[in-house]
């Protein structure tokens, strides 16, 4: 974490949407541990990616719900970068890359939402803290985000009970791996760093991921107010 702000999951996951998903996968004790884990640390990222200890207790729906949160995070990230004009200012090669990845992530969200139906839950409120608003921070964070997603899918896919769902998640995993390689190419980094992707070894991307993957508390904009102060 050289020189970067230290953030704990509880600092950014104020409505505990992410913790809730982790707790579903790993149990309360693990969630309590994660509450104090440092965002971006290898420990946290490995814990997020690691297959749960009590795998028999984890349903396919819980895994899919967990996956949806990350797909929503990614989709929102690319969409925001596009909407605030960052993507439009990039050179055509990068622009095409950011647009395609955004299209893919939004398609992933749509299909997982459809599969989960009512269990999909509400979209969390995201706060990217300005990361989407500069090309440099956007592209660097994308590398971390895609690498993280690959590691997550590599960790959870073997735990899925339904073979057809496993097959579908493999389809997502290979696509995300292509995204990760493409993102690394965009920032002139080696697309394939190692000969084997360890689901639990994410320390190489932890610094880049720090303070960028944010799920925040939604603003409170509705209140019960017995005597409002409007002029009437």
């Amino acid at each position: 974490m050289t020189g970067e702000p230290t953030l704990r999951l509880q600092d950014v996951d104020r409505d505990e949407a992410l913790l809730e998903a982790v707790a579903e996968l790993h149990g309360d004790t693990r969630a309590d541990f994660l509450r104090t884990a440092v965002i971006g640390s290898g420990v946290l990222l490995a814990a997020l990616a690691a297959p749960p200890a009590a795998s028999a207790a984890v349903s396919d729906t819980q895994i899919l719900t967990f996956g949806l949160r990350f797909e929503r995070l990614q989709a929102s990230f690319y969409t925001e970068a596009d909407r605030v004009g960052t993507v439009g200012k990039m050179d055509p090669r990068k622009q095409r890359w950011a647009e395609v990845l955004g299209e893919h992530e939004r398609a992933h969200v749509r299909i997982i939402k459809k599969i989960l139906g009512r269990k999909a839950g509400k979209r969390p409120f995201f706060d990217f803290h300005g990361v989407t608003e500069s090309e440099d921070s956007f592209t660097r964070t994308t590398v971390a985000m895609e690498d993280l997603t690959v590691a997550l899918l590599a960790g959870v896919t073997p735990r899925v009970h339904d073979r057809r769902l496993t097959a579908a998640l493999f389809g997502l995993l290979t696509t995300e791996a292509r995204h990760a390689a493409w993102a690394r190419n965009i920032v002139n980094s080696t697309p394939a760093v190692r000969s084997f992707d360890e689901p639990r070894s994410l320390s190489d991307v932890s610094r880049t991921v720090a303070h960028t993957h944010f799920i925040a508390a939604a603003p409170k904009m509705t209140r019960k107010r017995r005597k409002p102060g409007f002029t009437g």
Binding site: R83, G102, E103, A107, L165, F170, G171
Partner: peptide, 12 residues
Amino acid sequence: APAFTPGHPEPL
């Protein structure tokens, strides 16, 4: 056979 396949990607 996969349980699902995403639909065609759509531009923003």
